[in-house]
Write a protein that binds this DNA or RNA. Structure first.
Lengths: 206, 206
DNA sequence: TTCGATTTATTAACACTGTTCATTATATTT
DNA sequence: AAATATAATGAACAGTGTTAATAAATCGAA
């Protein structure tokens, strides 16, 4: 069965080519400029060929989204060295904001666009590999904070939700140019960090 | 100069027709199904005619967005009867969540999509009539809470930002199907309300 | 009222988009 | 070598926003 294996490998390599070309377009020209035809041009295949390797564009975007999560997860690797879970939560929040502001295109795909979730619902039987990992990190830290009586106890999922909501609210309003309606544009980033600090502090006191 | 006046009125009427047709499509078929050609079909004009009355599609979407804010503002009219500003803040938050969950399409346009902001930057000399009104309401309540020493004092804009971030974070993650990754789908709405309560309560205690 | 100018509306077209189908080319198996 | 399975493609469908050139209607002045 070495032939089937090699075939499978070839198939996987072309899938990789397609995803890498997509990512290249994505980071260079932004989300809206990723089109099937442009990807095909870049790898010098016909547009229809992409449909042999991916069901549709949403599936490609889903994989780009997963790559975004890989980046985000990588940026949080150093967290394990922080023993105090509240400090860890704080850095997680800071990292989240920085990631969003530095990679707005990825952030968009990971937390705003519908496309990737469509693929999850239609194909992956509801599995969101990297996304779920990232959320587990958050829940785990909150749980540890609660175990060590550092924050008020309660439903982990609900508290995680509130924390995530603050961070996501800030980033998504920022990258969609809504925050500068409330704060002077050059003070937006500073205020965002202050908001995160405020939230973590109120969590502590409670 | 009665003729010019009448001409202006006719012009305004056709603009209204276009916007009403857009809104009809918008609420019936959703954001993605609003196209210049469909609007034109509905009012029985040619697609190019719309460009005589609006600069581009973004400008039409901007007006739909403003209509969304009118709805939201209307849903907050009863707020003036609540004398305690913290109670008012709480109801504002509840209304915000309910509005977002009940009008996801409008919410999208008002707080997520880029299109309306493009028009604001390019044309309206940076003026966002109804959007700014809605944000003023929030800031005003926060200011009143601070004046009456009901919450910790600080920069009004920054605190408003944190409060807005929680509410927007919850709604936008919910309508983009991200929250059900953290909480069981049938418990999402309940948890959202709990998160809002939690935030207002921690504001109080501080 | 007729002529010229201005405004309004339309047709045709451009340059795209995602996606599908029928056909060709390639590779594998019998 | 012939038959079969796989991979790749060209052409086309049905749509998108937008623009330029053209036709129709309206208006102000002679």
């Amino acid at each position: 069965m070495g032939i089937l294996e090699r075939k499978e490998k070839q198939r996987e390599e072309i899938r990789k080519m397609i995803l890498e070309a997509s990512m290249q377009l994505f980071v260079k020209e932004g989300f809206e400029n990723v089109s099937i035809r442009k990807i095909a041009d870049l790898i010098e295949y016909s547009p229809t060929t992409l449909y042999i390797y991916f069901k549709d564009k949403n599936e490609i975007l889903f994989h780009l989204c997963e790559m975004g999560f890989e980046r985000m997860i990588a940026s949080n690797l150093a967290l394990v060295q922080i023993e105090n879970p509240i400090d860890r939560l704080y850095v997680l929040g800071e990292n989240y904001i920085n990631f969003g502001l530095e990679n707005p295109e990825y952030y968009d795909l990971m937390f705003i666009q519908n496309a990737p979730m469509k693929t999850i619902r239609e194909q992956n039987v509801g599995h969101w590999p990297n996304g779920d990992v990232a959320l587990e990190t958050l829940k785990h830290i909150i749980q540890e904070c609660m175990d060590k009586k550092l924050i008020q106890t309660g439903d982990v999922a609900t508290i995680s939700m509130a924390v995530w909501a603050v961070a996501h609210g800030l980033v998504s309003l920022a990258i969609r140019q809504r925050l500068e309606r409330l704060v002077e544009p050059d003070k937006v980033v500073k205020s965002m960090h202050e908001s995160i600090s405020w939230m973590i502090n109120t969590l502590k006191k409670a």
